[in-house]
Amino acid sequence: MSAAPAGPPAPAPYPYAAPDLKGVRLRSPRGLAIALAVLFALVVGTDLFAVFADWNLRSLMERVLADSGSVSAAELNRGDTMNGVAGTLQSAATLVTGIVFIVWFHRVRTNAEVFAPGADKRKRGWAIGGWFVPIANLWIPYRIAVDTWGSSTPFAADGSYRRVRLTAVNCWWGVFVLSTLVGRYASRVYGHAETADALHSAATTMLVSDALDVVAAALAVLFVRKLTAMQHAKAAQGPVVAAV
């Protein structure tokens, strides 16, 4: 998978700034997009390791339920340690990737405001703060992504406005939210599991959660690449006046 988003070469510097944004100019998101492609690959790697750890724990609990004497203490300890390591690696990879993603998200949101001043419903600071508002963070970033997507859509060849389907945005956000909710539930179930049957159920839920994380990370890369390419294409067009 190529790390560089497709699209025309970026002008240096970008060709224009919105006149009413007090000097705010376009900044290329390509470097951040490349870094995110690498980081999301790392996230996928840790998630796959977690899937393996979940499957291993689930298999151990199946053996315990069938015959408790068939599983040694050493195997149980290794399974528990593997899950702990997987969780630590996932947390570290997710934290670093999340920080870089929010920086990229704020940059493309700022660029969108230059492309179409006043078109976005929330101030660009929400591209950062919106992720940290309980409950609302399941909706605010999505709306910002939709507005940014619309403002970043390049003009048609004749200078008229055109629409690009929101499939990449909707798929990424839908799986991301589902993965987040299932992950929270899985962590709660695993934290309260004390019996072999409960651990078996928890491992199954964690396996589903980690598999969803893999899909969400892959869709996030597609979203980042597509939006970055759209902004490059629109930046290269300059301040085109849309046809009436």
Rank of each mutant, 00 (worst) to 15 (best):
W172D: 02
N170P: 09
A203L: 09
A156F: 05
Y190V: 07
A211M: 06
I144N: 00
G174A: 13
T110V: 14
F115A: 01
G150N: 09
V114W: 00
S160K: 04
R109H: 10
A193I: 08
V208P: 00
W172F: 11
A211K: 01
T167N: 06
R184V: 15
G174D: 10
A196V: 09
V133P: 11
T153I: 03
S187K: 12
G159M: 02
S187R: 15
H200Q: 11
M206C: 15
I128W: 03
A116C: 14
A116W: 03
N111Y: 09
A145P: 07
H192S: 15
S209F: 11
N111E: 06
R163Y: 12
D158K: 02
R165N: 15
R124N: 08
S201V: 12
G130Q: 04
A168C: 11
Y142H: 07
G191N: 14
D147P: 01
V177F: 03
T110I: 14
Y142R: 15
A157L: 00
T195D: 06
G125I: 08
G183W: 00
P117R: 02
V133Q: 10
G129N: 05
H106G: 05
S179T: 05
G150I: 06
T195L: 08
P141Q: 04
R162V: 12
S187A: 15
V189A: 09
P117Y: 02
R122A: 05
D120H: 13
A203G: 12
F115N: 07
T180R: 13
V108S: 02
A168D: 11
I128Y: 03
G183V: 00
W172M: 02
T204N: 10
A127K: 00
V133I: 15
A127Q: 07
R107A: 07
S160F: 06
T180P: 03
G118E: 12
Y190P: 03
G174N: 09
P134V: 10
L181N: 09
T195W: 12
A211D: 05
T204E: 14
I140D: 12
V108Y: 05
L138V: 11
F176G: 05
A211S: 13
W149M: 02
L166M: 09
H106M: 11
A116S: 14
E194K: 11
D210C: 13
G183A: 04
I144Q: 04
L199W: 06
V169A: 11
N137R: 06
Y185W: 15
L178R: 06
W173L: 03
A202M: 09
P154V: 03
K123I: 13
G174W: 10
M206H: 14
R163K: 15
P134Y: 08
K123C: 02
H106F: 11
W173K: 08
R143K: 14
N111C: 12
W104D: 05
L212A: 02
P134Q: 13
V114Q: 07
V108P: 00
R122F: 14
W149D: 03
Y185K: 12
H106V: 15
L207V: 04
L181V: 14
V208T: 11
G159Y: 09
